[in-house]
Amino acid sequence: MSEAVVSARGLCKRYGEGERCVEVLRGLDFEVARGEMVAVVGPSGVGKSTLLHLLGLLDRPDAGALELFGTDVAVLTVEERAAWRNRRIGFVFQFHAMLSEFSLEENVAMPLFIRGSARREALAHACGLVSAVSLGHRLGHYPDELSGGEQQRAAVARALAGEPELLLADEPTGNLDAAAAADVFCLLCEMHLSRSLTSVIVTHNEALAARCDRVVRLAGVAHVG
């Protein structure tokens, strides 16, 4: 088997305390090999997004070991986790999560701005990506001037702006109509292949999930407390 980009052992995550404590993940083992495109499916509340947040270093597990790119992420400092999110991990969220004060190209260039890239270079790189997701005619437009599908394409472009190795998408088509959803999913597949990404996609759409290399089904755990 090829090198594992994601390797999780016995992941546990719970929210709240006492009687209101909800255990979302219990003892989850999860592995994704380099270049693999994995779909994570399951009913609502089963912990799909939570898993993605843990993989994306946006949250910490209560127990278990998580390795990304062969490194135990527990040893990373807050700043290192932020740097990894900027350079090694790309996110696509269900809601388009565009910054309303910034134009399309600026939104796409944001990871590069955060990285400290020169504005001109960052915008040039963003322009290329915007064209790659077929939004070249929308350069300079603001998020509220884009359709839902266009915003999600832009979100994909922004996720790729930092040249990540790992792409995490949290229900990227959940807020779109069938045609736009298929369109965005095609774009994700295309980018996954053309950029040799490792991708984890959380979705409710079984048909789209079936187009991934592998489908992981999460089952719920009992509520605790």
Binding site: L58, A82, R85, N86, A97, L99, I114, R115, R158
Partner: peptide, 16 residues
């Protein structure tokens, strides 16, 4: 806060 969350996902550190 949504913007800040997105920026954090893009790599903006809490100190920033």
């Amino acid at each position: 806060r949504a913007d800040v969350a997105v920026l954090a996902a893009c790599g903006l550190a809490p100190a920033q």
